[in-house]
Design a binder for these strands. Sequence first.
DNA 1: GCATACTTTTTTGCATGCAAACTCAAAACC
DNA 2: GGTTTTGAGTTTGCATGCAAAAAAGTATGC
Lengths: 240, 240
Amino acid sequence: MQTQNPALAAASRRSTTQTRTTELVATLADDIIHGRLAPGVRLDEQDLAARFGVSRTPVREALGHLVATGLAEHRPRRGVIVTVISPERLRDMFLVMAELEASAARLAASAMTALERRELALFHQGTQVAVRHGRITDYEQLNDQFHSLLYVGCHNSYLFDLLNATRARLAPFRHAQFNLLGRLAASWREHDVVVQAILRGDSDAAAQGMRSHLSTVSGAAADYVAIQVPVPPAPRNPAR
Amino acid sequence: MQTQNPALAAASRRSTTQTRTTELVATLADDIIHGRLAPGVRLDEQDLAARFGVSRTPVREALGHLVATGLAEHRPRRGVIVTVISPERLRDMFLVMAELEASAARLAASAMTALERRELALFHQGTQVAVRHGRITDYEQLNDQFHSLLYVGCHNSYLFDLLNATRARLAPFRHAQFNLLGRLAASWREHDVVVQAILRGDSDAAAQGMRSHLSTVSGAAADYVAIQVPVPPAPRNPAR
DNA sequence: GCATACTTTTTTGCATGCAAACTCAAAACC
DNA sequence: GGTTTTGAGTTTGCATGCAAAAAAGTATGC
């Protein structure tokens, strides 16, 4: 490894309170969430240290962080690997995601300010355009924004954290639910049920609407379990 | 600091796959959860290293873990402190705990096996004795077990994790809800509503029953916010 | 030919040391 | 007198090195 120059590297960073460790965490987490690092892939300390031009220490800390977050696991004497999610576990997570979102809708129905309600209604109406023109990728993004509006609207920081953490861990598996014919319009109608319930302050209906909305969505996503890399016995060093 | 002897120390440990880091995490987390380390207390690296007879490295890793878990926070250049929970945050957490428990009850109502239902009913009947004799401390423990039965009964590992994580973080604030006159009997009756709903497979009623049960409980616990240590500006070295 | 014992290689956990950057505070300056 | 500057003292992030333990590889015996 080349000799480091802490001074120079640090100077370009310190001001933003970012450390090499946090950088690594951000990068690796992002890679995992976006599927660039498939479940089961081994996160080799020395390897990463070399690749990122740092020593093993910050790498270890970053990996520890990922493990604590649940994005990676620490197999006793086989190092750290990207979390392998069993089909059952995935189903469990989708189910809980639906419950969390239902709770968010419930809270939003009672906690949203008048302004927030207006904005939600307006935004929701806006998404109808994407549906009419069948703009799937657009709608995917709008869909995310829609849900985020609710996350904020429930005014509950802890629920916000849980929702985002769970969403991040499910991200690799949330794809292409809208490809199915008619799913786009159906999704909008389901959103509509939730929005109407929230607007009239009906917590139970909002929660119920969101729950059934997400159970159809996750049903489609459950097919994507097979994406995972089959590296269970994990040979030590696959010819580097 | 005395010179370490890694060999000896390691030998007494390695067999159990425990490292110094995990030891530290366990100890510190336990201390935080049980209130021996009050919110706002500074977790000084060198201090802890000296106290536990290890170097700063495992201490740092342990602290990182605690931070990732949410039990501690990492103030930019002021070190790590035990998480200070604002009254709003605490309310948020209690509210979400209620939602999570409601979800657990909902899932349990549809996922519990016949055997589990029988055991739940039996256990619940058993707790009535403690109520009749006003055995508060006994009932507190039975209450925990009761809820744990539901955690298991919903057959959802992810919800199980979230419930336990949240419960751990709320642990320092959950005390003495039962001291209030009549709370004991009321608690049992609320449990009873949930149990009956689960036994007849009524998910909605189970969820609703659990939600209202916990909202009364958390209402009582909300008074305990004041327990926290007021160390906000945190002077650098409070005379060690 | 398979199993067991021995050796080599990797990996991992941890200690230690150092330098950058922050905090605090006294001194110098306006 | 108030503001800025300088400097000492911590603290923290990280590199490096070492030793223990497991895994992989090799040899030896049955």
